[in-house]
């Protein structure tokens, strides 16, 4: 680890990588909390995987893969969101189909793109070590979008996540805010793909928020703690991967999963301890 810190001071690519991890951690905490409480992890996974289609097409036609990812993610979010509103029975099937079709289209484009394709692996599993300053700016911009939209419409997002029927009765445009929420999830997916790749995105989107949910009373609290955890996991995963020269994305995910497991065990043990030695008398009302 000390080797990593010395290298961090010496190499700008590592500084960029660390910064990318921190920016991604923020996004995963903000949107991951909504994904976890609304239980749309599978939906987020569908968006993430379908994105390969857009990245492949972008590569083939020669424009920015991140832009391709962004457009596909938003499109996938809108399609899934509209279908889940007007034909709920089909939502599951549709997500699975988009998931696979996106990847199939992506593979076709990538294999037909002339030249040597190192891109595929970094799309699938991320490559935080080759992040450019321009990509960092884009990640920062995506974080600003996420934080400001959630800040502006927190009430509405909370109401739509909690009780759609009541929100509608209070005059909230539920379809609009649900679709907006899904679009923001799509933005966070694109943000996280830069770091851990599209296959591993769901883990980073859900694990820090799930841990935070074990300790926090509100979504607001979850967002703050999950963001801090996301940043910590990214930084820790990156530093652990450096000396043995492992892929950082995979190490980051394993750090997050390990922490989730530990946290789960700790809260279970604590609960057992509390029921055996209750500190407050039981409430009888």
């Amino acid at each position: 680890m000390t080797e990593f810190y010395q290298a961090l001071l010496a190499h700008s690519f590592l500084q960029y990588a660390l910064l990318a991890g921190l920016l991604a951690g923020l996004g995963c905490g903000v949107m991951g909390s909504f994904v976890v409480v609304k239980r749309i992890g599978f939906l987020a996974g569908g968006i993430a995987h379908s994105v390969l289609g857009g990245m492949g097409a972008a590569l083939y036609y020669g424009f920015d893969p991140t832009l391709g990812a962004f457009i596909t993610a938003i499109l996938a979010a809108l399609i899934i969101g509209l279908v889940s509103f007007y034909n709920q029975e089909r939502e599951d099937t549709l997500i699975a189909a988009l998931w696979a079709v996106g990847m199939a289209v992506g593979i076709l484009y990538i294999t037909k793109t002339p030249g040597y394709n190192t891109e595929l692996m970094s799309y699938l599993f991320g490559n935080i070590l080759i992040v450019s300053p321009r990509e960092l700016w884009m990640m920062g911009l995506m974080d600003i979008i996420l934080v400001s939209m959630v800040g502006l419409f927190f009430k509405q997002f909370l109401a739509v996540s909690f009780d759609e029927e009541f929100a509608a009765l209070r005059g909230i445009n539920v379809p609009f805010f649900y679709l907006l929420l899904l679009c923001l999830v799509a933005v966070s997916v694109v943000l996280l793909i830069q770091v851990v790749g599209l296959i591993l995105v769901i883990a980073l989107l859900t694990l820090p928020a799930a841990i935070a949910g074990q300790y926090m009373r509100t979504i607001g609290g979850m967002i703050v703690l999950a963001s801090l955890l996301g940043m910590a996991f990214s930084a820790l995963g990156l530093s652990l991967s450096y000396t043995p020269d492992l892929p950082p994305g995979a190490v980051i995910i394993l750090v997050a999963a390990g922490s989730y497991l530990l946290s789960l065990l700790a809260t279970r043990l604590f609960l057992r301890f509390k029921t055996r030695f209750p500190s407050t008398p039981k409430n009888h009302s």
């Binding site: 409480v37 239980r39 009430k155 509405q156 909370l158 109401a159 996540s161 909690f162 009780d163 759609e164 029927e165 009541f166 929100a167 209070r170 005059g171 909230i172 949910g213 926090m216 009373r217 509100t218 979504i219 609290g221 979850m222």
Partner: peptide, 24 residues
């Protein structure tokens, strides 16, 4: 409502729940 339509373990306080009445 009869059956609360929300997940019972949703992370929300009593005050936040009641404030939702003010949305419109």
């Amino acid at each position: 409502p009869q059956y609360p339509r929300f997940a019972r373990d949703f992370p929300i306080t009593v005050e936040q729940t009641v404030l939702m009445a003010r949305l419109g």
